[in-house]
Design a protein around this nucleic acid. Structure first.
Lengths: 209, 209
DNA sequence: ACCTGAACACCGTTCAAGT
DNA sequence: ACCTGAACACCGTTCAAGT
């Protein structure tokens, strides 16, 4: 056996960076945004409070790395949701919508971080790239659904924005428990997502010649 | 003259509470959320760092008071937007939608605070009340628009939630500058709000018998 | 190349004590 | 009744110094 305990090889030598990112993600999930502290992340990695600065320029940069991972996970969830249902366009849109809401509900702190102003700001091009990939999945599905009934040439983009905004808004309301109790307690996310998409699809149908 | 300089009478005696709330709001608008510090708010009010605790149990409680004021302002803006356009239902909905987006765009930090998880949490009943008042304006307008075409009995509520979510989501995308540049630079908020409502209104029309 | 120790300038919050 | 001074336990960040 060349390597004793292949589990070790991570932090202390090798992969402090990874340990910091996943430690921060864990802290975010368990203790909320205020629980994420550079010093605590360092403590959990068994390293001095100054060590993280060898790998991240600032706390913000670490959070951006966490958000980047979350966007990658969202993209994966959306593509699975899209392909789960079947081949028909409206079905695929519903699948994406359901996956979107379920992701937000399952990872509220991550979802909030993804859209928080903190990781945005100039730098962090990797973050932007992952965010764009997530949006692209949504945009593609909308395009598929809408293109058949295309009227007023090139109008798919604004429609995709409406779909995106609707899901983003619903996710926010769900996460912040802002929905009226009778909806929150009795309407499953899948139904909510489906109903919302139906309203839009009705709108789409009205657009067709 | 009974009172010398009626401007004074505020903090130091009388109204430290008000001075703290408006100081925090000013700090939030000018320096962003990270700029709001209990100690800095106290400094600006010309008072010791411990003084705020005579009026607010915690920083969170002060922020809740700020958010409460913002919701009151939003309610006012929405009612004005509703009444500005005219008497027709769809027109009133467009007026509210426009006012909603413009409020968010004009006061991004306030808008984010209003929906942040911080001021929610158990207590702060005043905040919840003001938030419900804002939502009620929106709900009323939707009801007016939808009631004419009422089908599937009592289905106005879910529709209002969709409208609300769409506006909430659009506001988020606008604030976080998440929209594609060609939209951000060329489409005025009013047009965006109008187009979004049109999609929903088309959906509504499709619901009618 | 990667990490530690110690320091700096901040926080939120508490609590005795002042007027 | 309302406010101050001083303290406690934290932060993010920097920088010399260690291996």
């Amino acid at each position: 056996m060349a390597r004793p305990r292949r589990t070790r090889r991570t932090y202390h030598h090798g992969d402090l960076r990874r340990a910091l990112v996943s430690g921060a993600a864990e802290l975010l999930a368990t203790c909320g945004p205020n629980g994420v502290t550079l010093r605590e992340v360092a403590r959990r990695a068994g390293v001095s409070q100054a060590a993280p600065y060898r790998h991240f320029a600032s706390k913000e940069a670490l959070l951006a790395a966490v958000a980047e991972e979350s966007f990658a996970a969202l993209t994966l969830a959306l593509t699975h949701g899209r392909d789960a249902g079947g081949r028909e366009g409206a079905e695929r849109l519903r699948g994406v919508a359901k996956a979107y809401l379920q992701f937000a509900a399952a990872h509220p702190s991550d979802y909030r971080l993804m859209w928080s102003p903190i990781p945005r700001g100039r730098a962090h091009p990797g973050l932007r790239a992952r965010a764009d990939e997530s949006a692209a999945v949504l945009f593609d599905v909308v395009e598929t659904v809408a293109s058949a009934g295309q009227k007023r040439g090139g109008r798919v983009r604004p429609l995709a924005i409406v779909v995106w905004a609707l899901l983003h808004g619903l996710a926010g309301l769900v996460i912040d428990e802002q929905l009226p109790p009778e909806v929150r307690e009795r309407v499953p996310l899948e139904t909510l997502a489906g109903a919302a998409m139906d309203v839009l699809l009705d709108g789409l149908r009205a657009w067709r010649p």
